[in-house]
């Protein structure tokens, strides 16, 4: 006689291992704080490079105006404005990164908890983990 409960549990576990399990187990190797910090550091680097590209595009677009006002321009004010825009841009990008990776970590943990719960249920179905000891 086939135990349908066991088959259901094992099928669910196999599907999880084949699909989301691979990704979730990589996430499980990190503490949440370290996982998010790693992501924030990566976003800082990519965000800074992206900001430099945006700034170069802006500079090329306003090159005529910049050339005309080059000698009368308040450089400190310009640098402060650029710095402020950079801080706002990076703050938004880091917040988005924090939210995305935090949700990702929580989803992975939820999936893993469900998987380990199935492992325990299956072990109990086979009579507990000490059952194979002679």
């Amino acid at each position: 006689m086939l135990n349908e409960d066991k088959i259901r549990i094992m099928t669910r576990m196999a599907m999880y291992e084949k699909n989301e399990g691979k990704r979730d187990s990589k996430t499980d190797a990190w503490f949440k704080g370290d996982y998010i910090s790693k992501a924030l550091l990566g976003s800082f680097i990519t965000g800074t490079i992206a900001f430099v590209i945006f700034f170069m595009i802006y500079a090329l677009d306003s090159v005529e105006e910049l050339m005309l006002t080059l000698y009368s321009m308040d450089v400190i004010a310009l640098v402060s404005r650029v710095g402020l825009v950079y801080i706002i841009f990076m703050a938004c990008f880091e917040v988005i990164t924090w939210v995305v990776y935090s949700v990702r970590y929580d989803k992975a943990q939820k999936g893993l908890r469900r998987y380990y719960k199935d492992v325990k249920r299956l072990t109990d179905e086979y009579g507990g983990k000490d059952n194979d000891r002679i």
Partner: peptide, 14 residues
């Protein structure tokens, strides 16, 4: 290059 670079830096990051 600019368009694809921005795409990879900001979007494929996730």
């Amino acid at each position: 290059l600019v368009v694809f670079l921005l795409m990879f830096l900001l979007y494929f990051r996730f």
